[in-house]
Design a protein around this nucleic acid. Sequence first.
DNA 1: GAAAGTAGTTCATTCATTGAACTAGCTCAC
DNA 2: GTGAGCTAGTTCAATGAATGAACTACTTTC
Lengths: 176, 176
Amino acid sequence: MALPSTYADRNCSLARSLEVVGERWTLMIVRDAFFGVRRFGDFAAQLGIPRAVLTSRLKSLVQEGVMIREEDGGVVEYRLTEKGVALWPIVRALMGWGDAFYSPAGEKRTTRHDEDGGRLDPDGRCEECGALVPVPEIRIEPGPGYEPQPGGPDPVSAAFATPRRLLEPVMRQPAG
Amino acid sequence: MALPSTYADRNCSLARSLEVVGERWTLMIVRDAFFGVRRFGDFAAQLGIPRAVLTSRLKSLVQEGVMIREEDGGVVEYRLTEKGVALWPIVRALMGWGDAFYSPAGEKRTTRHDEDGGRLDPDGRCEECGALVPVPEIRIEPGPGYEPQPGGPDPVSAAFATPRRLLEPVMRQPAG
DNA sequence: GAAAGTAGTTCATTCATTGAACTAGCTCAC
DNA sequence: GTGAGCTAGTTCAATGAATGAACTACTTTC
């Protein structure tokens, strides 16, 4: 999205949000970032997104302060900022709606409070302890609607199929 | 969005949702529908969207069961179905994020429980009575961040600036 | 029956996306 | 250091979608 420059609507925060995260691919990139993807090549491979588009999207996400680009000794990483992490309710709501109407076998991913294993309700509250669970304490794991991938599972996809905390980096080679 | 046909990701309900509501303009149309817009011409005028695009979006929303097209005595109306109303948490989350990061003067629109006037918290719960307020009982009104429109306010924009219940149809001529 | 309104189409132009190939810089082994 | 291999990011031709303005077809109203 975002063409002539934006949506015209000055009085709607929905329009304003969509100007930042409403373009094709953008929320998929953000989702991957929640799932621990940080490297350019991993985003590209995982999403099947053209590299030129990925470059453009990451650039605008960084410019908007949703992600930050960190270069450390030749290694480039993209991470969500606080503003980016604040997108979680949006991502959760979209996953919830898709689960409800397009996943008859049940939710594709289950979220839990990693501390006590309690499931999270639609508002992100732990059904065990009642707390509103902060993003880094959310564990995500395959749910009843999850369909194991056919074909060779690359390391990143494999990590996606394993219970893990949000934001925890995907490891691309076994730590040595 | 949604080009070659879709996103490839079979295991993510976020991708699935974006295939339905992720294209440019789609969520703006849905928002207008929550605000009571039902007529083709009102969507077109309110959003400044090219009519050809509007036709295409409405067609796919109807096909997906998010909206329904009703023709009654020459009058055509588009309305949200239950599945469409279930998009409210997504719309709310997007408005919330935009308010938080792009509306320094405060939220652009306030939502209340129409029965008792209580404000709704981010989860959509009434701060007066504690109930999770169903969409038709939500009243929306200009908030502290709302900026009155310059220029001639057409009837639809005027309705948007007045406290009203969600889904309640926008009247285009005073009932006679 | 003429005027005005509405839903929707058509079409040339502009712009974004696609996908594949390419560049440039770094790391590591020898 | 030289070469192999990896990674971030660019380039570019082809495709497809968005834009905007004009137009069609149908209704209602007076």
